[in-house]
């Protein structure tokens, strides 16, 4: 857990200065969104909260609704 946080802080230190320096708002928002998204997912993974993977949704969709699999 702590390692995860340290790693993400270092990632911030690496990318944030260059994102702020060229200052386009679009990049800032995009970077923020992606960073928080990946941070939350990694956090959930680190806390062993299992998240249903999108492929499993597809799997159920094919198997139950379409009954269309080998």
């Amino acid at each position: 857990m702590i390692i995860l946080i340290i790693v993400f802080i270092i990632m911030l230190m690496i990318d944030l200065p260059s994102v702020i320096r060229n200052g386009k708002k679009k990049i800032l928002i995009a970077y923020g969104l992606i960073f928080t998204f990946s941070f939350t997912i990694c956090l959930l993974l680190a806390l062993e909260i299992n998240i249903k993977s999108p492929l499993m949704f597809v799997d159920e969709f094919y198997k139950n609704i379409l009954h269309f699999s080998y």
């Binding site: 990632m11 997912i41 990694c42 993974l45 492929l55």
Partner: peptide
């Protein structure tokens, strides 16, 4: 897709995302 001219700042967050994604997948 996001109409941004450089992807360098996104390398590391996306890498972390991929690692997590490859574990959740199956």
């Amino acid at each position: 897709w996001l109409k941004i001219e450089t992807f360098r700042p996104f390398i590391l967050p996306v890498a972390a995302l991929l690692v997590a994604y490859s574990f959740i997948m199956f």
